[in-house]
Design a protein around this nucleic acid. Structure first.
Lengths: 331, 331
DNA sequence: ATGAAAGCGCTAACAG
DNA sequence: CTGTTAGCGCTTTCAT
C-alpha cells in the first residue's frame, strides 16, 4: 500500500508538503497541491488513520458500548447517540461487551482507541468502567451510577414517571389502583414503584399490599398477575403496569374475562414501546425520553472533550402518552 | 497518561524488556516480569492500541458496516457475525454508513483501521466498496454482487427458496397458486419469483398473469393484494407471499372475507420473521439462513487474512418451516 | 511556499 | 535474559 512518502516522492516534494497538500493547508501553492493530489490518485493512496490519530493524539471517535450488537436494545437511544455524534463531526462505533475483560468493548475502553465512550451494557463490570475512565477520556453511563470524576450519568426519571402514571389515574377519578411490578431487583422498577407510592400518599390514598402484584416485566408475567388480580374478587378501578409488555399481557387476561378496557377498568403502562399504539385498546402509557438520553450522553462527552465543565448527573423527565386505555372512573 | 517508557523507567529496565514482559514473552525472567507488571500497575499504565496496531500492521478487528446503527436489521445475521468473530479471537465493531462519503463507515473502510469489513448497507455506493477493497483488506458484501478480487459475496438463494415454497404447495395438491410479489426493483423478489416460475414449469402448471399481484413487501400491500385476488372472483388454491409481512396482511384480508386458512385456501410466506409463529394460523414459510450468512462472511474474511484461497461467491440454501397455513388441497 | 527532522507509543530484529 | 535501535505512517514545529 502506498504511503505518504510514496506520494511525496512521485510528486517530487517533501513528505511535509504532501501532508499539507492532502490536508488542505493554505500554505501550499495551488500548483503543488494539484500535483500532490494527482500523485495520490495515481498511487491510489489512502492515509493510514492509525498513524494520523497516533500523531494527533485524537481519534475524533466515540464508542457506544452495547451488551450485544445483535440487540435487542433501545433503538431510539442509539438514534439519539448517532444523530448527535454525526452532526457534531464525530465518528461513532458500536462494540459489544460480550467476553468480559477480553471483549472488544474493553479493548476500546482502555487502549485509547477512541476519545470517549457511552456505556449501555449491564454486563460490563463497574470495576472496568471505573478503571477505564480517566482525564481526557470521559465516560457516560446510562444504566448505573458510578462515583468518578470522569464518569457522567444520565438516566430517565423513573420515579417521576411512576408518579405521573399513578397521578393520571387518580386525576381520572380512580381511587383503587393496582401496581403490577417488575423484578424486585430492578432499579427501574423500584423507582417506578416509589413514584406510585408517592402519588398515592400525596392524594391521601392508602397503599394496600394486595394490590402490588409481581409481573416480572414480561408479557406472560403481566397476564398471570392480572389473572391473580381478577381471582382476588376485588378489582381495582385501574392498573398501573410497570412496563408495557406486562400491560399487553394484562390486556389479554382482562379480555378473556370479559372485562372491558377502559369501561370496566383502566390500564396504564410504561415505556411506550412500539406496539402499544396498536393493541386494543391503544395503550395509555409513560414514554421515556430515550432519544434525548442518547443525545445528551453525546453532548456531555463532547463538552468534556472541549474542556467544558458539566454536572455529573442528569435525570430526564418522562412524558404521558394518552391513548385509550384510561377513562374517567364511573361512580 | 503513562507510556511504556514510564513503566520501563520505573521498573528499571529497557522499553523492549517492558514490552516483552507485558506481552507475556517467554524470554523474560519471572522476576523482571513481576517488577514490570508492578510498575505498570502503579502507573495505571494502559497500552496505546493505535501505536501497537500501527507497528504490527494489524488490528485484529473487523468492521461490520450497517446502514443505520439504530436498526432495524437482521439481528440473526449480526449474531452470526459477532459469534464467529469473537470465537476466532477477532474484535468486531459496527459502524454506520450514514453520511455517505463522510461517514464513519468510509473512514473505517479506507483508512486501514480494521483488517477487513462486512457490508450490509445499501446506502454505501458500489464505487466506495470497490475503492476500499484491496489486497490484505477483504470485503464481504451481503447485499449485492461486485466484480473485484478482494470482494466476496454471500447471499441467500432466493430462487431456490421461491422454488421450494411453490413446490411445497404443488406437492400438497395445489394446482392454482398466486404469487404476491414485492417491489419489482427488488432483486430478492425477482429471484423468488423466478423460483416460483420454475416450480410451475417443472410441474406442468401454466403461469397466469392474473395471479401475480404486487404487494410491495408491506403488510398493507399484502392486505390489498389479497383483497384484489378475492375480488377477481376466481380464488387460487394457494397463495405464495414473497415475504411474511405481506402474508400477515393477507391473512387478515382472508379472515375478513370469511376464508379459512388453510381449509379454504393455503398460504405460505418467506423470511420466517418472528411473529410468523404467533399469527393465526401459524404461518408456514421459508426461513433464510441469516445466522449462517453472517458466520460465513466472517469465516471468509479470516480465511483470506490468513492467506487462504476462497471462492468469490456463496449462495446459501433456505429451509422450509412447516406450520399450519398450508394443507392438502381438497379435490 | 517548501523541506528537514523530530517524535507520537509501540514492537521486533539484533546484539550481547 | 536484557538492552539498543530502527521504524510503522503520519503531523508539525522550525528553518530556509
Amino acid at each position: 500500500m502506498a504511503t505518504i512518502k510514496d506520494v511525496a516522492k512521485l510528486a517530487g516534494v517533501a513528505v511535509s508538503t504532501a501532508s499539507y497538500a492532502l490536508n488542505n493547508s493554505t500554505k501550499i501553492s495551488m500548483e503543488t497541491k494539484l500535483r500532490v493530489e494527482k500523485a495520490a490518485r495515481e498511487l491510489n493512496y489512502q492515509k493510514n488513520g492509525l498513524a494520523s490519530d497516533l500523531k494527533k493524539d485524537k481519534t475524533n471517535t466515540i464508542a457506544l458500548i452495547l451488551s450485544d450488537l445483535s440487540g435487542p436494545y433501545y433503538s431510539e437511544l442509539i438514534k439519539g447517540v448517532q444523530d448527535f455524534a454525526t452532526s457534531n463531526g464525530y465518528d461513532l462505533i458500536a462494540c459489544s461487551s460480550i467476553g468480559g475483560a477480553n471483549s472488544t468493548a474493553v479493548k476500546f475502553l482502555k487502549e485509547k482507541r477512541v476519545d470517549g465512550a457511552i456505556i449501555l451494557a449491564h454486563n460490563i463490570s463497574d470495576q472496568i468502567a471505573l478503571e477505564s475512565a480517566r482525564d481526557c477520556f470521559p465516560l457516560v453511563v446510562l444504566d448505573r451510577k458510578l462515583p468518578n470524576d470522569n464518569i457522567f450519568h444520565v438516566e430517565v426519571d423513573n420515579e417521576q414517571g411512576g408518579f405521573m402514571a399513578t397521578k393520571h389515574l387518580i386525576d381520572r377519578g380512580h381511587k383503587t389502583i393496582a401496581y403490577v411490578s417488575g423484578p424486585s431487583n430492578s432499579l427501574d422498577n423500584n423507582k417506578r414503584f416509589a413514584g406510585y407510592m408517592r402519588a398515592l400518599k400525596e392524594n391521601g390514598i392508602g397503599f394496600q399490599s394486595k394490590w402490588k402484584i409481581p409481573g416480572d416485566f414480561t408479557r406472560e408475567g403481566g397476564y398471570r398477575a392480572t389473572k391473580l388480580l381478577i381471582a382476588q374478587q376485588d378489582l381495582p378501578q385501574g392498573i398501573f403496569y410497570a412496563n408495557d409488555e406486562m400491560a399487553i399481557g394484562g390486556l389479554q387476561a382482562l379480555q378473556e374475562n370479559q372485562l372491558q378496557v377502559p369501561d370496566d377498568i383502566s390500564v396504564i403502562g410504561f415505556d411506550d414501546i412500539q406496539i402499544s399504539e396498536y393493541v386494543s385498546p391503544p395503550l395509555t402509557t409513560i414514554a421515556q425520553p430515550k432519544y434525548e438520553a442518547g443525545a445528551l450522553a453525546v453532548q456531555l462527552i463532547l463538552q468534556v472533550l472541549e474542556g467544558g465543565k458539566v454536572s455529573p448527573s442528569f435525570s430526564l423527565p418522562t412524558k404521558l402518552v394518552e391513548r385509550q386505555s384510561v377513562k374517567h372512573a364511573g361512580v
